[in-house]
Nucleic acid binder design. Structure first.
Length: 285
DNA sequence: GCCAGATTTCCTGGTT
DNA sequence: GAACCAGGAAATCTGG
């Protein structure tokens, strides 16, 4: 009701934002982010596409991808059980996976099996995207679908490794849900949280083309370099073409109360991770 | 259908 | 004056 009028009111700001961006960004809903962020495409998976050649780092990335894909709580998987490289991962049996990841084990096992199987086709360059694509065939726009980010489409949330002893909470309030010790699906209706999205951009410097940068890595202080571009990226992820930095920053300010972020007085576009933000410290990687 | 969590949207006023 | 910051208030969306 009110939305209709307010939408009209927001048109000028949105238009001005889009005019600052490359035209491909404006071709919503299915733009090619690679034109905006050269080098993002196919960097992660194409070279080491076969799981047996993965590093430990890539194994963790794959795990994180699986969590994202299946909306599985990170707490469900003891990451320390997967402190292995691709070769060791591939040698794990179904039972090994079940032992290492409990009820999530079979999901991981089948995913990996598919990866290995696909990689056996000579001449066919494989990426996890292919597996994901082969499941539901109804993704209109890759950029809005979290489950297909890893390959061609940049999604910083894919980088959230967080192989930490205490799993990355979706929110600091997850303490309240202590009555669900083996929760498979967390209450995270919108997928990755904004602060995690921001964190993961920061944790992917090689895939972060000057959007956000660390001001003080140790203290968790960071600064937006391209505030509107980040907002647009966030908007793409949320399938919301009218996202602006103004709105994004409002959401950021809500994190102050929850101590996910701390105020950095007197500095524009500068934020700091708070005590309830997890997974951003180098020691947590 | 209700509820809660996490934004999203709009707004006013202040600061840089 | 533009861009940003701070927060209040209400709406929206989604999973439980």
């Amino acid at each position: 009701m009110v939305r209709h009028t307010t939408c009209i009111m927001s048109i000028p700001s949105t238009a001005s934002i889009e005019s600052q961006l490359p035209t491909t960004w404006s071709s919503y809903p299915c733009s090619d982010i690679s034109t905006v962020m050269p080098g993002y495409t196919s960097r992660l998976w194409s070279q080491d596409s076969q799981p047996q050649y993965w590093s430990k780092y890539q194994v963790w990335e794959w795990l994180q991808q699986m969590l994202d894909m299946h909306q599985i709580d990170a707490a469900s998987i003891p990451f320390q059980n997967f402190d292995v490289d691709g070769r060791q991962l591939c040698s794990m049996t179904y039972q090994d996976f079940t032992r290492a990841a409990g009820t999530v084990g079979p999901i991981l096992y089948h995913s990996l099996t598919e990866l290995k199987w696909s990689g056996q086709y000579p001449g066919v360059e494989f990426s996890p995207l292919d597996v994901i694509k082969s499941e539901p065939d109804d993704f209109p726009c890759p950029f809005t679908e979290p489950s297909i980010y890893p390959s061609d489409i940049y999604d910083p949330s894919f980088q959230s490794l967080a192989p930490v002893a205490s799993p990355t909470p979706s929110s600091p309030d997850t303490n309240r849900s202590h009555s669900r010790p083996h929760q498979v699906k967390k209450h995270n209706p919108r997928g990755t949280h904004l602060w995690e999205f921001i964190r993961d951009i920061l944790l992917s410097p090689e895939r972060n083309p000057g959007l956000i940068k660390w001001e003080d890595r140790t203290d968790g202080v960071f600064r937006f370099l391209k505030s509107e571009a980040v907002a647009q990226l966030w908007g793409k992820k949320k399938n919301n073409s009218s996202m602006t930095y103004e709105k994004l920053s409002r959401a950021m300010r809500y994190y102050y109360k929850r101590e996910i972020l701390e105020r950095v007085d007197g500095r524009r576009l500068v934020y700091k991770f708070g005590r309830n933000a997890r997974g951003w410290r180098e020691s947590e990687k």
